[in-house]
């Protein structure tokens, strides 16, 4: 067993551990292709996430990371195994597990404001409260003055800010992020990463963040799960244990990165 293979290098001061919010038990997902061939995307996957934790799922493309997120969001059903959210099985997709998609998931006929307000329609709030809440989030994501723009009129980075705001406003129990910054240029990605860290400090959401970028995973995550291909499973569960504010040229950071890169190569 190579689990916990990597020793914790720098351990953060341990506070009392938060309760487990998401538990995945022996999750398996297989697909049947058009010529009735079975592909196993995920096999016997088990892990859990604690409240307020940010877990990065790291792996090469095609290893089933996105399939896992879709299962957790409830968009597809598992072939076997269980997903427990606060101890209860997850049934339908809904605001409890919200997803930030890779790109192009904003409603193109709604303005930035209307996109952010979309999910509030079901909430028992007055119109005024909703408007105030939307304004607060527009301010948080730094898009003041862009509220009445359409998605096609703003940049890729701004779109992802809106995508983040429209789910955060619903206070999801788990925030699922499917390579949300992969389509952005390097500079914008850095800005988005620091925005995400700011928002985490304010809202302390539980996040499962999928990425194929080792640096990004180490920069953002409390834990990094390394994903293995064929069939998709978790090969390593690494506690990052770096201080909250991290820099890419820190020695411990570099050592950890080299180590993870080696692990990924070996697979």
């Amino acid at each position: 067993m190579s689990r916990n293979h990597l020793q914790i290098i720098y351990s953060r001061q341990d506070t009392s551990p938060e309760p487990v919010i998401l538990e995945v038990k022996r999750l398996t997902k297989s697909f049947t292709s058009a010529d009735s061939e079975q592909t196993i995307a995920l096999k016997d996957l088990s892990f859990s996430i604690r409240q307020k934790e940010m877990v990065c799922l790291l792996g090469r493309s095609g290893c089933g990371k996105s399939t896992l997120l879709k299962l957790l969001a409830g968009f597809i059903k598992p072939s076997a195994g269980e997903i427990l959210l606060n101890g209860e099985p997850l049934h339908h997709p809904g605001p409890a597990c919200c997803m930030v998609f890779q790109e192009d998931a904003l409603f193109p006929w709604l303005t930035v404001k209307e996109n952010i307000a979309f999910g509030l329609a079901n909430k028992p709030m007055t119109r005024r409260q909703k408007l105030q809440e939307v304004d607060r989030f527009i301010d948080l994501i730094g898009l003041n003055g862009f509220g009445s723009y359409l998605p096609r009129e703003v940049s890729g980075g701004m779109k992802q800010r809106v995508a983040l705001a429209r789910v955060l406003i619903l206070q999801p129990r788990i925030l699922l992020m499917d390579e949300p910054f992969a389509a952005l240029d390097a500079q914008t990605r850095e800005q988005m990463q620091s925005l995400l860290q700011d928002l985490r400090r304010q809202f302390a959401p539980t996040v499962l963040f999928v990425t194929h970028d080792v640096t990004e995973a180490l920069l953002l995550g409390d834990r990094v799960l390394l994903f293995d291909k064929n069939p998709g499973r978790i090969s390593h569960d690494i506690k990052v244990g770096l201080p909250q504010t991290r820099s890419v040229d820190n020695e411990a950071f570099l050592r950890l990165r080299t180590h993870i890169n080696q692990q990924l190569k070996e697979e």
Binding site: P93, F101, G119
Partner: peptide
Amino acid sequence: INPTLTQAGTMLGM
């Protein structure tokens, strides 16, 4: 319709 949009709609509680 882009399936992501329907998924987003469901996810946002519609």
